[in-house]
Design a protein around this nucleic acid. Structure first.
Lengths: 182, 182
DNA sequence: CGAATCGTTGAAAGCAGTCAACTAGGGTGG
DNA sequence: CCACCCTAGTTGACTGCTTTCAACGATTCG
């Protein structure tokens, strides 16, 4: 079974028997959950806020895709992009410091979530600290400490509506990247 | 431009300006490098051993895919699988200990590399310690220490041909997983 | 009000990182 | 043939960032 998110935000995660959890991503409207090729779910999902999905039966969906190569092509393009995004996040998880992880998360979340309208400086954070921590491979305490530190440095401000990024955000990104393509 | 690996093993990685590196995967024969939809390379590549590839021009390849939905479908299936693999690795990077990271790596590398024939207990490791370390988000020193520890515990033996896994490998995997699918 | 959940803060511990010394092979050139 | 160098890998001592453990504050809800 495949689902397509139509409204809301979902959290995708994997969990170990001892409770350790890794959030692998967040699904926004337009994103697909599951694969039309397998009846195993690649990971667990839970709704962060009110979420609605469109259910797609595996068989009929496959038939549809075979009949509409254009859609198939779009799905492949999206899947490849998501693979690249996953690789980017690996870099963060494997090599980033706590502060870099959080900064990069805010920047990219702002770009994704605030797609309606220009990049706002008020970034809504519908997910809990635990979700953020598990996404970044940190503990909630460490996330809290990083937020406090950035707040003290006037990089951002915590409001009930989300994180208010200060102007200084455009300055040297904490987590610069430059790919040497060989 | 897209390439398909036909022989050998390649290493895919991303790197930061300060030299920190994350290996995002290893490409074996049959794997594709790059995307037919974008002319940006998603990551850097280097050949671990003698590698041959088949070069596919983006335009003609796209035309071919449009004319052969079956191939398109196979590429989508592969891309979705790789996305799942990337997510699995995120769990390892974000939540695994050094020992769990290495153990899981050996197990899954054996499954992939030793596909010809049954799962051998002699696992060849064509890549360097640095590649392994950068794949697991560790330092070469830590990898070395883990190997030494596992060798002392008679879990494996280091030989010039690769890692010799002892029988005890079938026992409780060091990194058990169990997905609570909601 | 009490209970529960979520988040913050502080102190201490621990796992992996850093720095450095050392070993082992492999290639080169005198 | 062997001294030399260079690279890959190992090992040890120490440091440090993040985790762990614990207490506290804020908010919501019955």
């Amino acid at each position: 079974m495949v689902y397509m998110v139509t409204h809301g935000t979902a959290c995708l995660y994997k969990m170990l028997t001892d409770g350790r959890r890794q959030v692998v991503g967040f699904a926004l409207p337009g994103d697909f959950l599951g694969s039309p090729f397998s009846d195993r779910y690649p990971c667990s999902v839970y709704a962060i806020n009110e979420v609605t999905v469109r259910q797609l039966l595996r068989g009929p969906f496959l038939t549809f895709l075979r009949a509409h190569p254009k859609s198939l092509s779009l799905m492949l393009e999206a899947a490849l992009q998501e693979k690249t995004a996953a690789h980017d996040h690996m870099l963060l998880l494997g090599r980033g410091t706590a502060e870099e992880k959080f900064a990069e998360f805010i920047i990219s979340w702002r770009a994704r979530a605030g797609r309606r309208g220009a990049l706002a400086n008020l970034v809504p954070l519908p997910m809990s600290r635990r979700d953020v921590a598990d996404f970044l491979g940190l503990t909630i305490e460490t996330v809290s400490r990083v937020v406090t530190k950035l707040e003290r440095e006037n990089v951002l401000r915590v409001t009930p509506e989300g994180l208010q990024l200060m102007g200084s955000t455009e300055r040297p990104l904490l987590f610069e990247r430059s790919y040497k393509v060989t």
